[in-house]
Design a protein around this nucleic acid. Structure first.
Lengths: 318, 318
DNA sequence: TAAAATCGTGAATAATTTTCATATATGCTT
DNA sequence: AAGCATATATGAAAATTATTCACGATTTTA
């Protein structure tokens, strides 16, 4: 019999076009999804997906079910917002510290959206730079930190958001463009263009340049577009999230290269005080980030890759 | 986490106002529903039902969830109709034999509704009386029988619809009105007004009068309203389903009495050929009957009272 | 053409849901 | 008011269902 679980799966499947990617999204194994889909097809006596090689496409029946899923899950979310109102958990503060500069790109539309649904929640961005953003949570100066911090800390909960790759950005025709993958040495010739934050907060420097013991020159600017503009006009090179430069790559305004054989990856978490972790509007905020980011951001991956059941179990034990 | 199962339960709960009745509707035990509700309340950290004595009422949160349930389950049903179209199972015949005369009352609106959703299905009523309606299925002269037949037969499937009580109907102020319960003897004085069908097809006669060995006088007429009119004008008494005379009782046009200490009950089944049992439009027809009857017909009960899991299991073994 | 990735499947395991067996509370009857 | 029938809650056991694991087949990629 059809359940919401199946609908959540179908949406992930529709968005990823792959069973294993969809499985990561919904925090299950590929096998679990394979079984789910089979059960659905058996139940409706209809093919839901069509396979040409490894590429999975939805059949008309599958598309119809996705349409249902979108409508239904939307209704569910809306209901859950109303329930929060009923339980008077609809008011509060959400002062956000953003460690990752580029994240403004996706956070802004989410904030707009959030404001419409939760008019009673004070939504703010905490500006300025902070060496220890999580401390702001403790001090009560902020309510949410979006950053890479994920070390377990007393009284703090880290929700995994996603993992993304940081790519080197070059002007089209740049000499390094001939290489498929850039190494630490490749960054010694050009000026490195970054946001104006301390060195230890720049992944490329902390994880690649410093360990390799090479030297570099740095120039900073506030805005992502400004960085890209400098790169394009050959004043230097940069390292930015893949999803942040997608459009510029498409227009061949700049080109991108992997950093190191495995690539340079960064994990993003959303951290809150423990007592805030179950707030309805916070949960909705998280859910919205998840939906929007995975739907719109290119090349990101779910954190906590395998099925999450084990992890939940471990969590409970604590 | 919320699942469709919970929504189905909530609708039943809303309509019955009782956990145990709702449990019967969804073919689960009272205990199962009790657990379900508890889980929901825990999940949302909100009371869903409020109890004043034995009467269960939904809280605002509960009502909001019911609203969701109605919308969502409607969408699901609509989707499933579309899937039937996709699988080209949307065309066929549904020639219905109706054993129970009064059932026209609820069947008509259902047929109208069905026609809108399944324009490609030829929907007809097979008229006339038939000593062995199920034989018509075999002969291919009909596709559906709605009646009391439920003996297992090769190649025929009986879907349980519901159980209802047959009440004696009297004119207001009738002498027998002073009794709470009527027995076989009470039917010897007055003319018994029935539909024009053979005696053995009238439950009162077959199950009460004949076993008691009493004699009776009978007069027949086609329409339920005509029967009631005759009763009201003191030309005789009748025995009709409780839900069929609800309105007339409310207006005190007639009065009703139980027949026998336990009451006289009748079970209704929908029978089809085995090969038709999984047809989508038939399943939808069944589902609609279920929904409409339990929502609108007064005093009916689900058949197969306990949780249905055991029965399903037994079925599979065969 | 080998290596890596993706998917399907049956069996094993884990998790969840349901039932069963009671306990408790309410309402009704005498 | 006492007793009985009915309705619900709850913990534990049982049943069912969902997920993972292990592995084979197939396809893509380098």
């Amino acid at each position: 019999m059809l359940e919401l679980r199946h609908l959540r799966t179908l949406i992930a499947l529709d968005e990823t076009g792959s069973i294993s990617l969809a499985a990561q999204r919904v925090h299950l194994t590929q096998s679990a999804l394979s079984h789910q889909i089979r059960a659905l097809q058996e139940y409706y006596q209809l093919p839901i997906i069509q396979r040409s090689g490894h590429v999975v496409r939805l059949t008309d029946a599958g598309k119809r079910l996705v349409k249902l899923a979108e409508k239904v899950l939307g209704e569910v979310q809306s209901t859950e917002r109303d329930l929060a109102k009923i339980s008077q958990q609809a008011a509060g503060n959400l002062r956000i510290v953003l460690e990752c500069h580029t994240c403004f790109d996706w956070l802004m539309p989410i904030m707009d959206n959030f404001r419409q649904h939760w008019p009673e929640v004070e939504l703010d961005l905490v500006s300025g730079f902070h060496s220890d953003p999580v401390a702001l949570l403790r001090q009560g100066a902020a309510d949410v930190v979006i950053g890479s911090e994920n070390k377990p800390q007393q009284g703090i909960v880290h929700f995994p958001l996603f993992r993304f790759e940081i790519l080197a950005v070059l002007a089209p025709g740049h000499a390094l463009g001939s290489k498929k993958v850039l190494e630490a040495d490749d960054f010694t010739q050009d000026v490195l263009i970054t946001y104006p934050v301390p060195e230890e907060r720049i992944d490329l420097i902390r994880q690649v340049l410093m360990p390799a013991g090479v030297s570099w020159q740095r120039r900073t600017t506030e805005l992502t577009v400004a960085i890209l503009q400098l790169v394009a006009s050959r004043r230097g090179i940069a390292a930015l999230p893949g999803w942040g430069i997608k459009n510029y790559l498409d227009y061949e305004y700049v080109i991108a290269r992997r950093i190191g054989a495995e690539g340079l990856w960064s994990d993003l978490y959303l951290s809150v005080r423990e007592q805030d972790a179950s707030l309805r509007y916070l949960q909705d905020f998280l859910k919205t980030i998840d939906q929007v980011c995975f739907a719109r951001l290119d090349g990101i991956r779910p954190l906590s890759v395998q099925g999450s059941r084990k992890k939940l179990k471990e969590k409970r034990k604590k």
